[in-house]
Design a protein around this nucleic acid. Sequence first.
DNA 1: TTTTGTGAATTGCTTCACAGCA
DNA 2: TGCTGTGAAGCAATTCACAAAA
Lengths: 214, 214
Amino acid sequence: MPRNDNIPAPAVRRLSLYLRQLELFHAAEVPTVSSKELGETLHLSDAQVRKDLAYFGQFGQAGVGYRVPELIARVRRILGTDRKSNVLLVGWGNLGRALVSYRGFAEKGFEVAAVFDNDAAKIGRTVSAAAQLRVRPVADMPECVQALGIRLGILAVPAQAAQAVVEAMVQAGIRGVLNFAPVPLHVSGDVAISSVDLAVHLEQLSFQLTTGTE
Amino acid sequence: MPRNDNIPAPAVRRLSLYLRQLELFHAAEVPTVSSKELGETLHLSDAQVRKDLAYFGQFGQAGVGYRVPELIARVRRILGTDRKSNVLLVGWGNLGRALVSYRGFAEKGFEVAAVFDNDAAKIGRTVSAAAQLRVRPVADMPECVQALGIRLGILAVPAQAAQAVVEAMVQAGIRGVLNFAPVPLHVSGDVAISSVDLAVHLEQLSFQLTTGTE
DNA sequence: TTTTGTGAATTGCTTCACAGCA
DNA sequence: TGCTGTGAAGCAATTCACAAAA
């Protein structure tokens, strides 16, 4: 079994992009791809693709390339998305609502199975009639995490509430948090945090405009 | 004038985080910060902070640190967010609606000044009564970009439409695109693209759970 | 032939450690 | 003394280039 750790973080990030592209190739019924083809669609060198994949195992066939369906299955396994999993969302605001109805999560096997908010006006509101999902108070989180086997949570609350809420999430047993609040979060123990600051991305584009755009 | 180029990309990304943190310090009326203090809140070393800032100029005072309001002004200048700017959004779906009402953009000086979609059922719908903003057809984009001096665009359309729409954006004169569609975009010329794939971020967290969580 | 997997070389980023300034 | 700015050192990631496999 190929071992993790001392795998470069950039390689892990790219692994998700390889999977996404492989799924596009698969939809187009392409049976095999070479590292060169895969790299070109993602603006990466063939050597980069091969080196990255080699961190996780030996998937290719010399002279042929990588068999698309097989590599998809293997990469999903590595990323832990070969099975469906339940996730929760905290923050039933504009962004939270959009994220619950975002189809991309379900396509990757992530089901938003519980929604929390601490605004009394929102608690009890119907999130999805089909899934019989309603907004629940944050106090219900520990029980819910346990009952539904939830490990990942999405945090979409206002900045000033984020630190307190993430602590409640960790307390409830959440092991990984996707944070949309524009503040750095501090957590104890081995909980993974991934932060997405939407405004920061625009800011980075703005910077690239001021210099010779790369 | 300190020169750009050969500034490491990671340093530019962190510059946005420094600014965000400096704004928090400023709100708390902290007059000066040292590289050590700034680094600690962001889990970075003091040397990293100093080296990063030094790529852009000499902002600190030996023995004192960095004066918060001054450094904020300087960093905004560098990032090009010292003035308000108009941006446009294409894709009036769930995500698009959430992004228009997202306050974080306005706080950084980005005003969503035009919204486009090609769904006939959506064209003409009111986006914001206050701003007298309505959904317009994509064909109106070139005229609108010109009239409002728009340089940045947010792309929130379904994956299969993304490539065609980004080409229309570039054609209309857009110079930087924040892309939420889970596909790689290919553009001609010196147009900056920043892609955010929400599902990929969850996938990365999932991976961290399978290994010894870092 | 084509294309992988991988050591070796190279490039780039981060950390170290300290001179210089307030 | 406290802290910045920065060359030098160390480490990490990418690219090169080629032996081996189909």
